[in-house]
Design a protein around this nucleic acid. Structure first.
Length: 602
DNA sequence: CGTGTTACTTAGTACGGCGTCA
DNA sequence: TGACGCCGTACTAAGTAACACG
């Protein structure tokens, strides 16, 4: 399947958008039919015969970029303890700067954050410093904070030349470390820099927020590369933790982060073939689900009546996952923020109402989901589901699991039996893409203008974002920007009124026969048309922006919507793809741009 | 079997650059 | 020409899910 897509990269006219990545590819573009036996094709074919789980044959890269070493603040920038300046050792000072940089952030108002920070701050101190610095409330980071603020201002106020020099420097770094060679192709790396030290910023009520994230040394880093490849050099005098040659994984480097003890990875950019293939497979799996979804739905509805509790619970949970696009809900540890998904819902997260706002059998969901984003939804459910929920909640109290006979492993094992490759998250992909397709069908008027079609597209996209609960905080200055827009619209309307009046006068004059005035009237008419078009565009923008204020469209576009649906829609309705996908998205979805024609259906 | 480990996808936010508009 | 606001991008946390291990 992928070989077919990949050939598109070479086909006439559509030159690869990123030549620096594809320079070595075949250039015989004129006769796609004759390409069958080019070298690139043969290689690709061989690559596809790989053993199970093998992801690449050759991999070479220059290793990750380390965070810049700590630079001490000038001597006149001081830390104060108990009202008096106190000189700090280098390590302690660095820790202090982490906090100083965040001084005006919300995090610094939280006890957990401050307590965790202070505990780690003290760990970084010399025994002498420990003797003195015992009370967080006596610490004063203000001068340091001011210093960093001033530095940031300085950076902003730098001259064009200085900024350009910096930009060039960064580009050189990207050029050297930002790419790797994998199976003979140059590919962009996603994150080639190691995470710099700083304070851990967990989301929601995270028990570890404020802890210090240690600086990463070469001796913390594992390198993964091809057996025959040149091993990246560690910084002078240092050694990597380990060098391996594991071609069953896609990461280039990894290390263990100290706050949560998780492994972090350096991986490829989404534009890479490896990621693209995986993405393609994801949507193909979702499309396979479409073929069996009716049967699956019939089955789980049937199982609402099962005499086995675990089957009933599984069936109700699956119904939620399907209907509401809930996440699976893996169990979490105590030392993480308390968030839940479907399988981990607890009694306090749902309320049952025989009747609510004119609807019957209403379940009110209210729980913190991924990233502690609130999920709130009043849902009318089938009576049988309602009855089952009453049963599941019998004799339970807050804190008890709603689905006590279910977890994600059990659920996914069941799903695997229903369809090869089916897991809970496939439903989210499936329902998101399905919704986009059907909403586009519903909302697109083929005779509409491009701006109108774009509003339709955004509305379809929005329907998905709402389904998946992709939220954002109202952007700073949203209200003001709306007011500005309204102002503009008013100005435009006034301009139209004026123009209209002039147009009428000119038309009258033209009727009296003067050729010159006739031309003028024509011109005015055209101007009027243009103004009206501009007004329409502004009004559409107004609607779009307001409807969008708390909804994030990007996440679904990037992760849930089969890009071929959007590509096909653009081709079918004469909308330039750039109106829908920005440059990054176009590179990520290059495969889809080439693969889908206007007739593609999800 | 249940628990930890590993690898990979999905997520919101911070920030800087750039275009726009007065 | 400078302020302003928006967008793209970088960043990294937080999910999912498979698998290893004992």
């Amino acid at each position: 399947m992928w070989a077919e897509t990949f050939r598109w990269h070479c086909i006439g006219g559509i030159r690869h958008a990123t030549p620096e990545l594809g320079g070595e590819r075949e250039k015989t573009a004129e006769h796609p039919q004759k390409q069958r036996h080019t070298r690139a094709q043969t290689l690709r074919w061989e690559e596809e015969k790989r053993e199970d789980g093998v992801k690449w044959s050759t991999l070479e890269h220059k290793g990750p970029v380390f965070a810049p070493p700590y630079e001490r603040v000038p001597r006149n920038v001081r830390f104060y303890y108990d009202g008096k300046p106190l000189e700090l050792s280098e390590e302690t000072e660095e820790a202090a700067t982490f906090y100083a940089k965040m001084l005006n952030h919300d995090y610094c108002t939280k006890d957990v954050f401050n307590t965790n920070f202070f505990k780690d701050f003290r760990k970084s101190m010399t025994s002498k410093e420990k003797e003195i610095i015992k009370d967080f409330r006596k610490c004063n980071f203000q001068e340091m904070h001011n210093y960093f603020q001033a530095e940031s201002e300085k950076r902003k106020a730098a001259t064009k030349e200085e900024k350009l020099a910096k930009k060039n420097e960064n580009e050189a770094l990207v050029k050297e470390y930002g790419f790797c060679m994998i199976d003979g192709h140059k590919e962009k790396i996603g994150n080639f820099r190691l995470e710099p030290p700083g304070l851990f910023r967990g989301r929601g009520e995270h028990p570890k927020m404020g802890m210090i994230k240690r600086r990463i040394q070469a001796s913390d880093v594992s390198i993964n590369c091809g057996k025959e490849s040149h091993v990246p050099s560690p910084p002078p005098g240092q050694r990597w933790k380990e060098v391996r040659h594991d071609n069953t994984v896609t990461w280039l480097a990894s290390w263990i982060e100290n706050v949560q003890g998780q492994v972090k990875y350096i991986m490829l950019n989404p534009s890479s073939k490896l990621k693209g293939e995986k993405d393609h497979i994801k949507y193909e799996t979702a499309r396979r689900l479409d073929k069996v979804i009716d049967k699956i739905r019939a089955t789980y509805r049937d199982e609402w009546k099962s005499k086995e509790m675990r089957v009933r619970q599984r069936a109700v949970a699956l119904y939620f996952i399907d209907k509401l696009a809930l996440r699976a809900g893996n169990e979490k540890d105590e030392d993480q923020a308390d968030t839940v998904g479907c399988c981990s819902l607890r009694v306090e997260h749902v309320q049952l109402h025989k009747e609510l706002n004119g609807k019957e059998n209403v379940v009110v969901f209210d729980f913190p989901g991924k990233d502690s984003i609130r999920y709130y939804n009043e849902v009318e459910v089938e009576k049988r589901v309602f009855k089952n929920l009453e049963l599941f909640m019998e004799h339970k109290k807050d804190g008890d699991d709603l689905f006590d006979r279910l977890n994600t492993q059990v659920l996914n094992e069941h799903l695997k039996e229903l369809m090869d490759g089916l897991t809970a998250k496939v439903f989210r992909t499936y329902n998101a893409s399905k919704t986009l397709q059907s909403q586009l069908d519903l909302l697109t008027d083929p005779s509409a203008t491009v701006p109108e079609k774009l509003l339709a597209y955004n509305r379809a996209n929005r329907a998905v974002a709402i389904l998946c609960n992709h939220q954002r905080s109202v952007p700073k200055g949203h209200q003001k920007s709306m007011e500005n827009l309204k102002e503009k619209i008013k100005a435009k309307r006034d301009a139209i009124d004026d123009c209209e009046a002039e147009y009428h006068d000119l038309k009258k004059a033209a009727k009296r026969g003067s050729v010159k005035e006739k031309v003028l009237a024509d011109k005015k008419g055209k101007q009027l048309e243009r103004l009206k078009e501009q007004l329409k565009k502004l009004e559409l923008q107004e609607t779009d922006r307001d409807e969008n204020k708390t909804i994030a469209l990007g996440t679904s576009k990037l992760n849930y919507l089969d890009p071929r649906i959007s590509v096909a829609w653009c081709k079918k309705h004469g909308v330039p793809i750039e109106k829908i996908f920005n440059k990054t998205q176009r590179t990520k979805f290059l495969w889809a741009v080439h693969m889908a024609d206007e007739n593609y259906r999800f």
